[in-house]
Nucleic acid binder design. Structure first.
Lengths: 215, 215
DNA sequence: TGGGTAAGTCAGCGATCGTTTACTTAGCTA
DNA sequence: TAGCTAAGTAAACGATCGCTGACTTACCCA
């Protein structure tokens, strides 16, 4: 066997990150105590303050981790088809290891910095989806529909986490089919969906000028 | 002016319920303290224990209130068209008074009884939607798609609560158009939705033949 | 092989949590 | 109008929260 060092700061840090991501995603920020996390990680509580300054710092570190993973995946899926597959995978893929990390994007800590990361990431994902649909990322109507696809995906994650049957145990392939229909209906490249709307969307577009995604 | 009784148990109870519903929906269960609620309501903290036994009891009372409101609305909208309108209204309607009460259905208190109310309500809403679509409430594939519509609605509520632009400030009529497309794609009475995809969806339907949960 | 330092432990701080108890007071009725 | 009861108040309980500072110990290198 590999003789693991009994004292390894990087490994301990990672243990804390893993435990925290699970707890924060599953139970939420304020329902999770630092002692819960430390116990799960099999590590002393004081090390959270040492490695992450504070509980908020630990949460931000968790958030940065999932955001990085997510941006990496998004970067590799630029077409509408592969993006749809990515969504179905992230939503319905096997999460035997950890609870679905998309949940972390919906957990609020009350910390302003973390909140900003959350919002920036969600905004970036929407724009990516709009681009994948063949449109411009600042077309407000298209962006709205892209965010609705995002909302459907995140809502599905939540309901699955709530163990709502049969959605909770639906397979990834079933979800893929549904999301293909959903994406086709909302983001179809051919604009045939002029069913029934008629009001202005202009003023909503202007105030969405936040920082952009970086690799 | 009307001279309101300075001591009115029913009115005070309602003040607490209103303040609690707002706080629980906005900030979540564990991030809200009973002192927050009592202060918002302009009422002494001890009255929460008196009228609702505990913080959990207060949360259950809030949940029952929104569930009753919701079931009332659902009862009056049995067709797929009116149900779609109801969804758009609940999701995008003016929530100047209170934060969107659908949020409460997604807030977990850790209390088992409250969790059961939550799950039962979500399950019931899905079945209602499946029936409105002209199907049977125990058809697992249809129920899955109905729950996906539900997921889209709830996800939208969450992203609007997170103030994601332009979704957060989109008008009800814009949302109505989107949700009409979405419902048409997922719950179209005529099963023509096997068209748009090239991947197989058939074997996915086969393994989902087991009997589902009870009404 | 001994010493320096990073890694980890331990106990406890002050604050806040939900809840309870003893008390005061307003309002209806006899 | 006297008095009883329900409505509301004030204070504090024990538990738990996030966090800190002093301490111990394992590991690496000279």
């Amino acid at each position: 066997m590999t003789n693991p060092r009994r004292r390894d700061a990087a490994a301990t840090r990672q243990l804390l990150l893993d435990a925290a991501r699970r707890r924060f995603a599953e139970d939420g920020y304020s329902a999770t105590s630092v002692r819960d996390i430390a116990t799960d990680a099999g590590v002393n509580v004081a090390l959270i303050s040492r490695y992450f300054t504070s509980k908020e710092g630990l949460f931000r570190a968790c958030l940065r981790g999932t955001v990085d993973d997510l941006k990496q995946s998004v970067f590799e899926n630029t077409t509408l088809e592969s993006a749809t597959g990515l969504i179905a995978e992230k939503v319905g893929g096997p999460h035997t290891e950890q609870p679905n990390q998309l949940l972390l994007l919906l957990r609020s800590s009350g910390d302003e910095a973390a909140e900003q990361i959350r919002l920036d990431t969600l905004g970036s994902l929407g724009r990516r989806l709009a681009v994948a649909a063949g449109g411009e990322p600042d077309d407000p109507e298209l962006l709205l529909r892209a965010q609705l696809v995002l909302a459907a995906a995140l809502g599905t994650v939540i309901l699955r986490a709530a163990r709502l049957q049969p959605l909770a145990t639906a397979g990834q392939d079933e979800l893929t089919g549904c999301f293909q229909n959903l994406v086709a209906a909302l983001l179809a490249p051919a604009p045939e969906r002029t069913a029934a709307e008629g009001t202005a969307t202009e003023e909503a577009a202007a105030e969405n000028a936040g920082p952009e995604e970086q690799a």
